[in-house]
């Protein structure tokens, strides 16, 4: 079984720059002017957003599969 993750934002670190939404291949993140949102059903567990965040505000939490 492949690993499935959930992306969590540390709100106090996040600048709402929208970069994570930009690099996400599957529109699983939406950044509005006032909030950051994650859509589990769209996430493909690639972690590109976690690595790309310029300030390290994102974290991946394993929700299914190997931990």
């Amino acid at each position: 079984m492949t690993e499935k993750i959930r992306i969590i934002v540390e709100e106090d670190k996040c600048y709402l720059c929208g970069g994570c939404a930009g690099v996400c291949p599957s529109l699983a993140i939406k950044v509005s002017s006032s909030k950051w949102e994650f859509f589990q059903d769209k996430c493909i567990s690639c972690r590109i957003c976690v690595t790309a965040c310029p300030v390290g505000a994102l974290e991946a939490e394993v929700v299914e599969g190997k931990s």
Binding site: V23, T51, A52, P54
Partner: peptide
């Protein structure tokens, strides 16, 4: 590069 394991801030 955005696939760098360290952050730009770092």
């Amino acid at each position: 590069n955005s696939d760098n394991p360290m952050t730009a801030k770092h």
